[in-house]
Computed example of a mutant assay.
Amino acid sequence: MRPVDAAPSIATVPSKPTAPSSATGRPTEREPAGGGKQVRAAAKERRRFERREIRRFTRRSRHRRWGWLTAIAIVVVMAALLAVAVYSPVLALRTIRVDGAKSVDAKAVTKAIDGQLGTPLALLDYGAITTELNSFPLIRSFATEIVPPSTLVVHIVERSPVGVVVTSAGFATVDPAGVVLSTSAKRPDGTALIELGSAGTDSVAFEAVVDVMLALPASIRSRVDIAQAGSKDDVRLILKGTGAQIVWGSAERSALKARVLTELMAAQGKNARVEYDVSAPMSPVVRPR
């Protein structure tokens, strides 16, 4: 009798417990307690960090943008101020003041340029002002100054007479540049007569006389009656009253000659009728007349 095989035994494996299913029937994982808050806090911190990094990397461009905006604002403000200065009637010319006028008629100068009254200071026509003032022969130079809100000051430097020359129109008073300041039928008092022979005020002889006259001390220049120059190397002076003469020679070393002449005249006395020869200033000569 064959032995009967026993029925094989089937081993059962305990099944893995399944997680509770969701409404869809799919299993879900349970979140640990408090996990949602940590995730949200981490995300918030992450966003904060990103914003800080963005600000840090864009700081230079933001500063550059603010710099441009500031520069544009300054330009706009300056343009507005310039427009006010140019076109505002508040800064229009209302007063003209003339300084330094002695021989020149200040009222005549004011009248010559009063066509500028009412014009904004920034729009004054300085070309027209120059043209008007150049018509005054006694004005050697001038400068203008604006004094806000509405004043123009004209500073005048007058021409100074150096002597008188004889012309076909009479006695012409001239300045060192040979500009005729005035003309009269009678020789003006207190001004030296310049004798140049056939030469004129545009000659080297006239330049030599001018150099000598300007080199003289005021105390001696006021006593010169006649200044003669046949050439640039032969300047002679005749003093008022005594008729004393001064042989000057050329205009070279005029400053030294003026010092030597001053000492000679002090030694001889004011009323000496002599001839002072300072043409060689290191060897001056005094001759009786």
Score class of each variant (00 low, 15 high):
18 T>F: 10
256 L>I: 06
227 A>F: 09
157 V>T: 15
170 G>I: 08
66 W>Q: 15
160 S>Q: 12
238 I>K: 12
188 P>M: 14
187 R>P: 05
134 N>F: 06
133 L>A: 06
5 D>P: 03
242 T>Q: 12
74 I>F: 13
28 T>P: 00
262 T>L: 12
9 S>C: 01
92 A>N: 14
192 A>R: 04
193 L>Q: 12
193 L>N: 05
24 T>V: 12
75 V>N: 09
45 E>Y: 02
214 L>S: 08
161 P>A: 15
147 V>P: 12
158 E>W: 05
163 G>I: 00
269 G>L: 04
246 I>K: 03
244 A>L: 10
240 K>H: 08
256 L>E: 11
169 A>N: 08
67 G>A: 15
164 V>Q: 02
111 K>I: 05
273 R>E: 13
185 A>E: 13
65 R>N: 13
73 A>W: 04
162 V>M: 05
102 K>S: 11
16 K>A: 14
276 Y>F: 15
288 P>F: 06
92 A>P: 11
80 A>G: 15
136 F>S: 05
29 E>I: 10
144 T>I: 03
272 A>L: 06
240 K>V: 06
2 R>A: 10
212 V>D: 00
283 S>N: 12
2 R>I: 02
285 V>Y: 02
122 A>M: 15
206 F>L: 06
282 M>W: 07
158 E>N: 11
262 T>N: 13
234 D>I: 04
63 H>C: 13
119 T>M: 09
213 M>E: 07
29 E>Y: 01
168 S>W: 01
118 G>V: 01
54 I>F: 00
54 I>D: 11
43 A>D: 05
202 D>T: 09
203 S>L: 03
216 L>V: 08
113 I>M: 11
251 A>I: 01
129 I>L: 11
50 E>V: 06
62 R>C: 04
13 V>K: 07
91 L>D: 08
228 Q>R: 07
60 R>F: 04
78 M>P: 09
59 R>V: 15
48 R>M: 07
147 V>A: 11
132 E>H: 04
23 A>K: 13
255 A>F: 01
140 R>H: 15
22 S>K: 00
172 A>D: 09
159 R>Q: 05
52 R>S: 08
191 T>H: 09
259 R>P: 00
269 G>H: 10
96 I>P: 02
165 V>H: 01
149 P>N: 03
279 S>Y: 04
18 T>K: 13
35 G>K: 06
218 A>L: 05
266 A>M: 08
10 I>L: 01
181 L>Q: 05
31 E>T: 06
229 A>E: 06
136 F>Q: 02
33 A>Q: 11
97 R>E: 14
93 L>S: 09
40 R>C: 07
128 A>P: 00
208 A>M: 06
272 A>P: 13
68 W>Q: 01
134 N>C: 02
51 R>E: 14
205 A>L: 01
76 V>S: 10
177 A>M: 09
82 L>K: 04
144 T>D: 11
77 V>K: 00
246 I>N: 04
61 S>Q: 14
121 L>W: 01
146 I>T: 11
132 E>C: 00
133 L>C: 12
248 W>Y: 09
186 K>E: 13
5 D>V: 00
211 D>C: 04
132 E>K: 08
227 A>W: 01
233 D>I: 00
116 Q>D: 11
220 I>Q: 08
35 G>L: 14
29 E>V: 14
